[in-house]
Design a protein around this nucleic acid. Sequence first.
DNA 1: CTAGACTTCAAACGCCCGTTTGAAGCGCCG
DNA 2: CGGCGCTTCAAACGGGCGTTTGAAGTCTAG
Lengths: 206, 206
Amino acid sequence: MNHPHFSTKERILSAAEELFARHGFAGASLRQVTSAANVNLAAVNYHFGSKDNLINEVFRRRLDELTERRLQALQEARQSGSATLENLLEAFVTPALNLATDRFGGSAFMRVLARAYAEHDQTLRKFLSDNYGHVLKAFAKAIHELMPELQKEPLYWRLDFISGALTYAMSDFGAIKRPPGRTDEEHRRNAAAEFVRFACAGLRAP
Amino acid sequence: MNHPHFSTKERILSAAEELFARHGFAGASLRQVTSAANVNLAAVNYHFGSKDNLINEVFRRRLDELTERRLQALQEARQSGSATLENLLEAFVTPALNLATDRFGGSAFMRVLARAYAEHDQTLRKFLSDNYGHVLKAFAKAIHELMPELQKEPLYWRLDFISGALTYAMSDFGAIKRPPGRTDEEHRRNAAAEFVRFACAGLRAP
DNA sequence: CTAGACTTCAAACGCCCGTTTGAAGCGCCG
DNA sequence: CGGCGCTTCAAACGGGCGTTTGAAGTCTAG
């Protein structure tokens, strides 16, 4: 085998993730992907069937783990007995932060996710909402129990704003550049703290 | 002429805006654009030189007016003597809302803008920051004067979050669907009010 | 060792892409 | 009317696209 530790499928997924982040789904070609992955062009259709399905699998690989960790963190926050809004939002943000920080290529995935939000493509949206919509619902329910005075409509609006802000912030194209004397991880951790404070205050708006 | 009221250039720009919103910059072809605009394929390269430049002009047509109205609204809010955070944010949001509501095709442009945020393409980003970066700076300055106790770094973070949330919300792919008994304009106006409250509270976070 | 399943490979398929070309059409001024 | 910019047109250019094909290679079980 060409690379000892990663299968052809995994190398395709990683290369696709990086190139989709950089050039978009339509802008990155299978020839670019297979060339970056050191893999034959036909391997994509052999292993994934089509480009569309490859896109879905790029999401599945990361989102399965991300949603599991989010739900687990949510459960821990609720079982602690004295769950605060801050706890809940941290349960939502921290797994995404860890993904963007710890794993090789995770930050590319955050940019892919921002692309997906900008796509209004029905197929992709249905795939995402079918497979991962329940996570947002679970968090909405937990927050609702904590803030019963907040009507449902404003709550959903605010969760919507928070999702958008988080996605865009995580894909790091903002005005904030990492200060010279700070490591990348410190920068992200700081961003998460800032975000949780911002989001909590927004949720608690009068 | 085929359509009496709109020039070839304008018809190309409108069709491009709509198709870029739907399929992305790479995903929408010039053949789709010219066909939707009822215009010869070569007209794009004749009037705009290249597809890349067409993309720029799609932004310029709307952003020139949008930034002017935002800066004008900002000035009015500051000259009123008793500018509040709510006034400032409304000065930022309302022109975007009007664009998305009043003008034919304006909502498509908001989706195009969301695409642009997701693009990390250097050329497009430079074009946008060179031509329209001063608007965000002006609002940041005004907010800073109103909240001098808020450090610069948290301020910029929060403005970043707000930009992301606004872009996301304006391109209306959120979980909130317009309730049956409400007009589209009421829906948007309500969204803007919700957004301003959310953003103000977030900015004022402890 | 060999049969058979799984994987990789180079090559080709038909199609659509952005751009260019040179001729044809058009409207205005002398 | 005639000439001249400006605009539109059909056609073609080379090249990249996603996908398919059938042969060659690789591995494992009997």
